[in-house]
Design a protein around this nucleic acid. Structure first.
Lengths: 253, 253
DNA sequence: TAGTGGTCTAGACCACTGA
DNA sequence: CAGTGGTCTAGACCACTAG
């Protein structure tokens, strides 16, 4: 009924809904405004809640909406540009750095990390946890893997763990010669602990930035940083020297 | 049955399923192998198909699975590393470039693009479409927006559109002095046309790489490249001079 | 044509938030 | 406590692919 006789290509309902809602968001809503609840919206559009939710999921993925259990659905602000300096060759923890050390443990890393570090699969390494805050919001959580061989002089540091220990590891790193670094970005889903730190549910989409730090041919450290994909735009402030910025680069139908 | 009495924190079923399947994929399956169909899997795990699908969606997002309608679900190969040269300062279309011109049109760009280019909202620009193939698979689709002012000598080129025209625009660009460029990466969802080109469904998760090209203080061109998020890992081949690479950097539970 | 994944429905209950 | 989004079910039908 009322298949408006157009769209002979049979566009899925949720996709059409997404488009309609996108336009509504652009024209009739302001940032921070809260939308009617899901049951209400579903009724208004004459679809099942599951279908409505499929559309909302899309919009949340695109950073247009923010949903919080027990609260409601609000119109999200444009994504924040978060600088991921590719140009800048420096050890983590150098100078400013935008990251906050949280704690430090010693444990065996995941297999993929062990391989990248070229340590044995079961060899324990330092695992420094850091978090990054931007505009008052937590935007990223990082695990920094540092083999013992990279920080040999760390023995006998007072703090056995905690933020103090994390800082000590980072401090030791600075004394190494940094031969180069290497970055990759991919999509992932938040593990339970990252999700908690980022104030999201497990499985939330994240941008995973993997950085390898080299010194004299070997990998001296490896950082796995997990950014909220819904609220962040990773920027690589390059050469231009220009600043500015337009709005979000969302996809128009 | 076997709620193993642990997980007092009430882990959602789909999340637990995801974990179980991840482990199964790691140990019992090989790349390209096809999984039992969804109804079968759901029955086997004793959940509704919707729940099973939620887990599969996660795994597809993480690049572990590939699902194709009418065919089945297969184990995906590790993500391909796709180089997104940040170091390299060059106009699109220079030298090798990895991109294939598809066609070219003249039309008014989306508002956000017009703002970035600092052209009027309704001013038509050249829109060059290109596609990028890696390992025999289409991995990205690009829209390159070039204001007329950046390619003034283009008047009277033979081809009014098509790949030839696209190449002509790119050729003209090379003659400008490139003052710098600027990149950002964010998560998006594939528009219908991009989805088609990438052999995905509309709404599929993509990594959107926005590049601005500067010349003498103004933005001479703007590229919006859409990469398949499920199959690609964007790499920024930096300074290190190193090559290699470990497996995928997926999240372990 | 048979079998796959994709869409959709109409319910139910749960976990969380804030007044 | 009432109201929100999150999870889950058990169906149905559709669109696509391949033999």
């Amino acid at each position: 009924m009322g298949t408006t006789q157009l769209e002979s290509v049979a566009e899925p309902k949720y996709w059409h809904l997404r488009t309609v809602l996108t336009e509504a968001l652009d024209s009739e809503f302001t940032v921070g405004e809260i939308l009617p609840n899901e049951r209400e919206l579903a009724a208004r559009f004459g679809v099942a809640r599951a279908t409505l939710r499929q559309a909302l999921e899309q919009l949340e993925l695109e950073g247009r909406l923010q949903r919080r259990r027990g609260v409601g659905t609000t119109v999200a602000p444009p994504r924040v540009g978060v600088d991921v300096g590719v140009e800048r060759q420096a050890w983590p923890g150098a100078g400013d750095d935008a990251w906050q050390p949280v704690d430090c443990a010693v444990a065996a890393p995941p297999a993929a990390v062990a391989d990248a570090l070229d340590t044995g699969r079961d060899t324990p390494v330092h695992i420094v946890r850091r978090s990054r805050v931007s505009h008052g919001q937590p935007v990223a959580a990082e695990l920094l893997y540092v083999p013992h061989s990279s920080v040999p002089d760390l023995t006998g540091i007072d703090a056995p763990s905690g933020a103090a220990r994390a800082r000590a590891v980072l401090r030791e790193l600075q004394s190494l010669a940094l031969a180069g670094q290497d970055r990759a970005v991919e999509l992932g889903s938040a593990r339970a602990d990252d999700a908690k730190e980022l104030d999201r549910l497990p499985g939330a989409p994240v941008l995973v930035v993997t950085t390898r730090f080299f010194t004299g041919g070997r990998t001296a450290a490896l950082s796995v940083a997990t950014y909220r994909a819904d609220t962040c735009r990773l920027t690589f402030g390059a050469s231009g020297g220009v600043e500015i910025h337009p709005g979000p680069q969302h996809q128009a139908s």
